[in-house]
């Protein structure tokens, strides 16, 4: 299993659209993927679970990935976070 912390740097946090972009990546994977924010764990393949975490801008979130493509998926998530979900940064 690999685990990494990423920072949410877009202006409005993880609302429906960014959550959808996360699930776009995680949904394709065969690995088990957990997103952890503020002590709460959620299934990162479910857009609703990700949205319900209500992650505000500036937060640190952790991804735990376990499976064959763990490195590849983590890389894609990192890229998405670094690109601010293609939104304005805060």
């Amino acid at each position: 299993m690999i685990s990494k912390k990423l920072i949410v740097t877009n202006k409005f946090g993880v609302h429906a659209r960014p959550a959808g972009m996360i699930v776009d990546i995680t949904g394709k994977s065969k690995s088990e993927i957990t997103i952890i924010f503020d002590g709460q764990k959620a299934n990162a393949k479910s857009i609703l679970n990700v949205m319900m975490l209500a992650i505000p801008p500036g937060s640190e979130v952790q991804f735990d990935i376990k499976g064959e493509d763990e490195n590849e998926i983590m890389e894609q998530l990192e890229k998405l976070f670094n690109e601010n979900f293609h939104e304005e940064s805060y």
Binding site: A16, R17, A19, G20, M21, V23, D24, G27, N43, S46, I47, L48, N49, M51
Partner: peptide, 14 residues
Amino acid sequence: RIFEAHLMILKDPT
């Protein structure tokens, strides 16, 4: 993309 998210919610197993 917002509608992409709406579609995903409809498919969401939860």
